[in-house]
Nucleic acid binder design. Structure first.
Lengths: 194, 194
DNA sequence: GCGTATATGTCAGTAACTGACATAACGAAG
DNA sequence: CTTCGTTATGTCAGTTACTGACATATACGC
């Protein structure tokens, strides 16, 4: 058995996803995942802090990429525009991982325990965005609020993108942030729809 | 031993909070909680689906109260104003439970497992708000977005309220929703602060 | 007092996770 | 090529959250 380390982690990650998709998350044991990956259960927990985490790995890198993109945005842009640009910049990454993240998303949608972890991961992304916004000179409370609102728009755009993949993520993001602007000014809910 | 049911749940809830505050969440076992409440461990799991849930109980009622308040808001108000009114309406509830929810909040702040559950509960509140907004005639995607943004402002106001309890929650909510409006228009992050 | 529903106790079992220690592979230095 | 230190893994024992099945006791209507 080769003892590469990084390789074992990838095998475990793949085995976990495969088994979860076959039998469901709850019906799969960590011992089964380890067995399919050719390692022991103990080794699984050396690579991942818990069972759920086997599905969430690229997240730290994604968080860093988003934060970097916020910092790279032109300095004269407001916080929301900087966020929108940052979200646009990760479109190629999302497209590249589509074949991996699409079945994963379907699995999460039917697994409450995984949905809960997604919320934690999303909160981590929001924290990273808020930190980046503060480095752009925004005050802390405003940065946290802007990051949360921006993430809401991003999730909204991602959902719209899944429903209509023919349009680009950028266009969906534009609509989401427009809708955001419209929310504050709306006086009557039905007036704008008619 | 009286077998009241509802009484046992209250005792378990109190025992859980007390023990978590004394020894920390992770260092407390469900058996210890049950023992202090005068019941068996099995009974604990008959009243709560898991260990964490012993701390989150008034949440369904709170969710319903928020949703009802959204529906009770004047029909000519826009979604954000309806949400702001709804948040204002629960201020007395929050004040009444302060002595209970303050130590609980401190406990959650130092317990990752509980923070994760808070996120799930918050997502439930957002769902309830979105549903209420839809009954007010708002389209589904806009309702979900508005609910998320409103909840962000609410959390923001709650935080500001904790930092400065002399002002009312209503005033903090006003500032938070104002800041929300300001986010979209801001062109330069530092310009408004100077 | 009697019967029934509901709350609880008891018991056995599964599975997620952890610590401690031993062992095997890998890389660099000699 | 051997040696040695580092790192990844295996082994084992143990704790604890959680569940199902069945028995028992308490409350409540009659």
């Amino acid at each position: 058995m080769p003892r590469n380390g990084e390789d074992a982690r990838r095998r475990l990650q793949q085995a976990a996803l495969d088994l979860f998709l076959e039998r469901g998350y709850e019906a799969t044991t960590t011992a089964e995942i380890a067995a399919r990956a050719g390692v022991t259960e103990r080794t699984f927990f050396r690579h991942f802090p818990d069972k759920r985490e086997a599905l969430f790995h690229g997240e730290e890198a994604f968080r860093a990429a988003l934060a970097d993109a916020v910092l790279a945005a032109p300095a004269d842009l407001g916080p929301m525009d900087a966020l929108r640009l940052a979200f646009c910049s990760v479109e190629p990454v999302l497209v590249a991982n589509r074949s991996f993240s699409e079945p994963r998303h379907a699995l999460i949608a039917r697994t409450p325990a995984l949905q809960e972890r997604v919320l934690t991961k999303t909160a981590g992304l929001v924290d990273g965005l808020a930190q980046a916004l503060r480095r752009r000179g925004l005050a802390q409370p405003a940065a946290a609020l802007a990051a949360q609102v921006g993430m809401a728009a991003f999730s909204h755009a991602i959902q719209a993108w899944a429903d209509d993949p023919t349009s680009s993520l950028e266009s969906h993001l534009g609509r989401a942030f427009d809708e955001l602007r419209g929310l504050s000014g709306t006086r009557n809910a039905t007036a704008s729809a008619d």
